[in-house]
Design a protein around this nucleic acid. Structure first.
Lengths: 244, 244
DNA sequence: ATGCAGAAATTGGTTGGACCATTGAGCCAT
DNA sequence: ATGGCTCAATGGTCCAACCAATTTCTGCAT
C-alpha cells in the first residue's frame, strides 16, 4: 500500500465548524474557566444552524471535559480553549482495581522522574522558591494533621511539573489524578498511605535546588517506589480480608 | 436482526444510560474493532429513547475516538469497549510547531525508556519473537525503500509497548502519534529524518531479549536523543530559510 | 425597607417527525 | 465483465414543541 499524501475531504462538517467558531469567540472575548458562554438558542441563531447541531458540538466539548452544562443555568467553560487545541482522549479498560492503579503508577513513575530531572535543569529562582513554599505548606500540614496532607502533597508535585517547562507533564498526570481521585485520597483502606513517601519530598526539592537532574530523578523514583509498596500492602490486606 | 438484548431506559441522564446499555450490548455480542453496531433508528426504538438522544450519546463516543460514523454506511467500532471503561481526555494547547513537537518528545522519552525497561523484565518468548519479527520487517523496509520506513518503525515500537504489560504506554504514545501524524512522517522537511535512529532499534531489541532492563532503557534514550537532534536540525534549517 | 414564598422567565434535556446527502447493493443495457 | 442507473438504508441537519432544573422577578406580609 503506497502513500498518496491525500486526506479524505469532509463534505459536511458543521459540528466542527461550530466548535471552531465557538473557540474563536471564546478567544475574542477572552473567556476563561468558570465563565458562561452563550445559550444554545443564541448560538444556533447567530451561527445560522439548528440548535441540535449546536448541542452535538457542545456534547463533544463536554465529553472532552472542556465544558460543563448545568440545566436551567447555562454552559460554563471548565478549561482553557484555543483555536489550535489538540485533543488526546485516552480510554483505559479495567475499573478502579489494583491493576489499574498499578498501571497508572508505572506511567507516573516514568513522568515524575523525567519531570524532576527536567525541573532540576530548567527551574529558575522563582520556580525553586515556589516549590519550596509548597513543600513548607505540605510539611506543616503533615505534622499538624497527622499525615493527612493529600491536597498539599498534590500541589507540591504540581509545582514541580509546572517548573519542568513542559505543560504536558502536568496535564497528563493531572488527568490521571482526577480519574483516581478517591483512591489517591484513601487508597484501599491503608490508613498511613503516603507516610513512607514523606521524607522524599524534601530530598527531591534539595536535588532540584542544587540543579542535580540525576539526583532529582533518583529521589523521585524512590518516592514512587514507596507508593507502590503501600499499594501492594493495601492489596495484600484486601486479599486477606476476603474482599475481591 | 431479531434479538438485540437491549432493554428500555427510564430515568433522566438518558445519554449516559444509552452508552452503558450500548457498552453492555457490545460486550454481550463480543463486538470488536471494525464491526458495525446497530443503526441509530434501531437503537432509538429498542432503548425507547429519541434518536437525538442516541445521537448525542454516540457523539460522545465519537469524540473519544471509540467509534467512527460513516454517513450512508453506519457506525463502526474503532476500539475495544467495555462497561468499566475510564476516560482520560487530554487537550493540549499549542499547535503543530517546533515547541509542541519537542514537548511531546520529552514525554515520549520518559515513556519509551520506561516501556523498554519494563519490557525487558516482563516480555516472554512469544512477545520477544513478535518484536524480532517487527524489527526484521522494519530493517528490510529501511533498506529496500532507502529509509522510508515510518510505518514499520512505528509498528516495531508498538510491539514493545504491548509487551510492556501496561496498555497505557501504547495508548498515550499512540494518541500523540496520531496527533502529529504528518510530522512523524515528514517532519519539518528533514529528508533523512530518522536515519540516525535506525541502528538503535536493533540494540534495543537485543537488550530486551537479554532481559537487561537498564540496558534497554539506555538504548531507548539514545534513540530518542537522535530524534531530538534531527528535530533541532530541522528547526535550524527552517529558521535559516526564513519561515516562522 | 426587608424578607421570603410563589410566579415567571431562562436554559439545558428530550421528543417526534421531516427532509437532505452519502453510501452501497441490485439491476440493466452495453 | 463494465459502467451507469435506480433505490433503499443510514448518518447529518433542521424544526417545533414540551419537560425539568435553575435563576430571576414579583408582590405580599412583616
Amino acid at each position: 500500500m503506497t502513500e498518496f499524501g491525500l486526506s479524505p475531504i469532509q463534505a459536511t462538517a458543521r459540528d466542527d465548524a461550530v466548535l471552531k467558531a465557538l473557540a474563536g469567540f471564546v478567544m475574542q472575548e477572552a473567556l476563561g474557566p468558570g465563565q458562561r458562554l452563550p445559550t444554545e438558542r443564541i448560538l444556533a441563531e447567530r451561527l445560522k444552524v439548528s440548535r441540535n447541531t449546536v448541542r452535538e458540538a457542545l456534547t463533544r466539548w463536554e465529553g472532552l471535559g472542556l465544558v460543563e452544562r448545568r440545566q436551567g443555568s447555562g454552559t460554563y467553560l471548565k478549561g482553557v480553549v484555543s483555536l489550535d487545541m489538540l485533543h488526546m482522549p485516552l480510554t483505559l479498560a479495567g475499573g478502579n482495581d489494583f491493576t489499574s492503579l498499578m498501571q497508572t503508577l508505572e506511567i507516573r513513575r516514568a513522568l515524575e522522574a523525567e519531570a524532576a530531572a527536567l525541573c532540576a535543569v530548567r527551574a529558575g529562582q522563582a520556580e525553586i522558591a515556589e516549590i519550596a513554599r509548597k513543600l513548607d505548606i505540605m510539611e506543616q500540614a503533615f505534622h499538624t494533621r497527622a499525615g493527612m496532607s493529600a491536597e498539599e502533597d498534590w500541589e507540591f508535585h504540581q509545582s514541580i511539573y509546572r517548573a519542568s517547562g513542559n505543560p504536558l507533564f502536568e496535564q497528563i498526570i493531572a488527568a490521571m489524578h482526577e480519574l483516581f481521585h478517591r483512591f489517591w485520597e484513601h487508597p484501599l483502606g491503608v490508613r498511613d498511605f503516603g507516610h513512607a513517601s514523606f521524607p522524599y519530598h524534601r530530598t527531591i526539592y534539595e536535588r532540584i535546588a542544587a540543579h542535580d537532574p540525576e539526583g532529582a530523578r533518583a529521589e523521585a523514583l524512590k518516592l514512587i517506589a514507596t507508593v507502590e509498596d503501600d499499594l501492594k500492602r493495601g492489596a495484600a490486606k484486601l486479599k486477606l480480608s476476603g474482599q475481591k
